[in-house]
């Protein structure tokens, strides 16, 4: 009973808590791992040697180029109606303010629609977006496009309510996108509390003036690597089951949840298979992506390099939505393939995690799923994920060893069985 053996080893056996403990040493040793930073270089070196020490096969680094942006010194202060220090985190790829900073009245809006309705009020102002958190995918548009929409109506900077479902004065960062032909203005996220306070003041008719200083700087692209390790298949070694997470993180907290958890349960899958002396028919390949937070940069270059072998990619799996209590597997593929994966999920009955959900989510595996390769992502209880996402709160304190054990069990049973079945998944 291979599935049971994997579950027992991961949840109750000698591998219990290993993925959590490995992640804790890694996160405490390396810290946050922003694309282009020395910490990320150190993280890749660390993993290159750790995967070799774990006696995995074909451990190697695949060179890629990644963006290199640094936030520098930044702060914001409300000057009117009273002095108040605003909690900010500059957004990735933002430009700096002029050396003397920017002092301007704010225009607070709760949506792009309101901004467009009040466009004539925006000239020379700092636009503050106080958009409510709906869902990440919907609300992240304000982080991504807030500066461009504000610049289009003549604003001099944008401050965006953090894309977070809960806050204790914690700003959340992330990447943002300028648009060719639209002036570039400095942009940062602010805490939910500060966005709401300035909104209330404005609605009272109070004039709000803010001073913003940002030292952000974009450098030439940096060299980085996707980190790869394998258990080579016994019968069809050229066919691949890819399990992955991303090794880079934002320059806040420890990047333990995003995406240390996903990276380390993916490593755990290969370790568990190796510990049990198993060798599936197909190659089980671990990829730890670089440059994910800047838009799946490392993954795109990996895809370009390997797409010629796309017919040999059986399934691509990424865990990048937390490793809290697992609920099942999100899957993208044909109905026939879904039925097979549904059957595989029944093997997880001993831990009662057998559900399958629509559409796998994973920036780094999207390139393959778009070309018809079946894809899977770990579905977990993300009710608290956006409390900590891209914030200083993303630390090991957020992670739970038992939940990671269960996530690793799900991840390993699914990837091993697909790698060992007589036929590849239909596509």
């Amino acid at each position: 009973s291979i599935a049971k053996a994997i579950i027992d080893l991961a949840v109750h056996g000698k591998a219990q808590n290993r993925s959590y403990e490995r992640l804790a040493v890694f996160a405490d040793t390396i810290g946050p791992r922003l694309s282009g930073s020395k910490n990320l270089d150190a993280a890749i070196k660390y993993m290159f040697s750790a995967l070799q020490e774990d006696r995995l096969e074909n451990v190697h680094l695949e060179p890629v180029k990644v963006p290199h942006w640094e936030r520098g010194e930044e702060f914001a202060v409300m000057l009117e109606p009273r002095n108040h220090s605003i909690a900010i985190l500059g957004l990735g790829s933002s430009i700096a303010t002029p050396p003397e900073g920017i002092t301007a009245e704010v225009l607070v809006v709760t949506s792009f629609d309101e901004l467009h309705r009040r466009a004539q009020e925006a000239k020379g102002k700092i636009v503050v977006y106080n958009q409510p958190f709906i869902t990440y995918s919907e609300t992240v548009q304000y982080r991504s496009r807030g500066a461009v929409e504000a610049a289009k109506v003549g604003a001099v900077a944008s401050l965006i309510r953090s894309v977070a479902s809960f806050s204790i004065h914690s700003p959340h960062t992330g990447w943002q996108n300028y648009q060719p032909g639209v002036p570039q203005i400095p942009t940062a996220c602010i805490s939910v509390e500060d966005a709401e306070m300035m909104s209330r003041m404005s609605l009272q008719g109070t004039k709000v003036v803010v001073y913003l200083k940002m030292g952000a700087k974009t450098y030439p692209d940096s060299s980085s690597f996707n980190t790869v390790a394998e258990i080579v298949g016994s019968k069809y070694p050229e066919q691949i089951v890819l399990v992955s997470g991303h090794l880079d993180s934002w320059d806040v907290g420890q990047g333990a949840m995003d995406d240390g958890g996903g990276a380390f349960i993916s490593w755990e899958a290969l370790s568990l298979v190796k510990d049990l002396g198993l060798r599936p028919k197909r190659t089980l390949r671990l990829v730890l992506w670089t440059g994910e937070e800047q838009g799946g940069i490392g993954a795109e270059q990996y895809y370009q390099l390997h797409k010629k072998n796309i017919s040999n990619f059986d399934v691509v799996m990424e865990s990048d939505e937390g490793t809290f209590r697992p609920m099942g597997l999100a899957f993208t593929g044909t109905d026939e393939a879904r039925d097979i994966v549904k059957e595989i999920m029944t093997l997880l009955l001993p831990i009662n995690i057998t559900d399958i959900y629509d559409t796998a989510d994973g920036t780094d595996i999207d390139y393959w799923m778009r070309d018809g390769v079946p894809g899977a992502s770990l579905r977990d209880d993300i009710s608290k994920y956006f409390w900590f996402h891209h914030s200083h709160g993303d630390t090991m304190t957020v992670q739970d060893p038992n939940q990671m054990n269960l996530c690793a069990a799900v991840w390993t049973v699914v990837s091993y069985v697909i790698a060992d079945m007589k036929e590849m998944l239909p596509r």
């Binding site: 009973s1 291979i2 599935a3 049971k4 026939e336 039925d339 097979i340 059957e343 595989i344 029944t346 093997l347 009955l349 049973v413 069985v417 060992d420 079945m421 007589k422 036929e423």
Partner: peptide, 24 residues
């Protein structure tokens, strides 16, 4: 029906279910 790579007929879903059950 074409032969699959190890010379057998492609499996029915029932066959696949049985194969997967072998892992439990």
């Amino acid at each position: 029906k074409s032969l699959s790579r190890d010379g057998n007929y492609p499996k029915t879903f029932e066959d696949i279910k049985k194969e997967i059950a072998g892992y439990s």
